[in-house]
Amino acid sequence: MSFDAAGTPLLAAENLSLTRGGRDLFSGLSLQVARGQLWQVEGENGAGKTSLLRILAGLSRFGYEGAVTRAVNPLYLGHHSAVKALLSPRENIAWHPSGEADYAQADIDDALARVGLYGYESLPCHSLSAGQQRRVNLARLYLSNNPLWILDEPFTAIDHAGVAALQARFVEHVAEGGAVLVTSHQVLEVDCEVHRVVVGAGAAA
């Protein structure tokens, strides 16, 4: 685990401003995500949450003002699940293009079991439901050593029990010294401090 080098923030943004289609989505937005913090990005539909997350993750590199510094490449889960329908859950994780590590098969099966995919490891993903396909992607949260998670609507298509398990995982990760930045319209039910950043019109942030 590479979580122990405390001190500098994992992710810092200064004075971010973004205009899309003539509309100011946000301006003068600053935040510092340190180890051990859970951040929730809030805002209405179309407020610019995903745009903000793509900027913070480093996927959008132009077209905005301000500066972003990252201590590490984040583990980013976006709207698209990056799950290949023709591959099994096990293959999807083992050959994942994010290339974070060469996981042992036992670890992969363990992570898949923890997201409720025990018994589905070697079925092609096109035979899984939408929620199960999202869960394949979420299994990475049980494998990765990456301290910084940027998650865009991770609860989409996930059932109640799954959402609770996921929130418990966030708390665990934060307690281990990681950091989580998440967008969701749901209220996070976690027993740790949630830092909030509000995006969009009428935002007092």
Partner: peptide
């Protein structure tokens, strides 16, 4: 095409591995 549509390319770009070899 397929990797663009399902988000795999985003993951590839964020990968710590050199994109040249990818």
């Amino acid at each position: 095409r397929g990797d663009f549509e399902d988000g795999s390319l985003e993951q590839l770009l964020l990968s710590p591995q050199p994109l040249y070899f990818s």
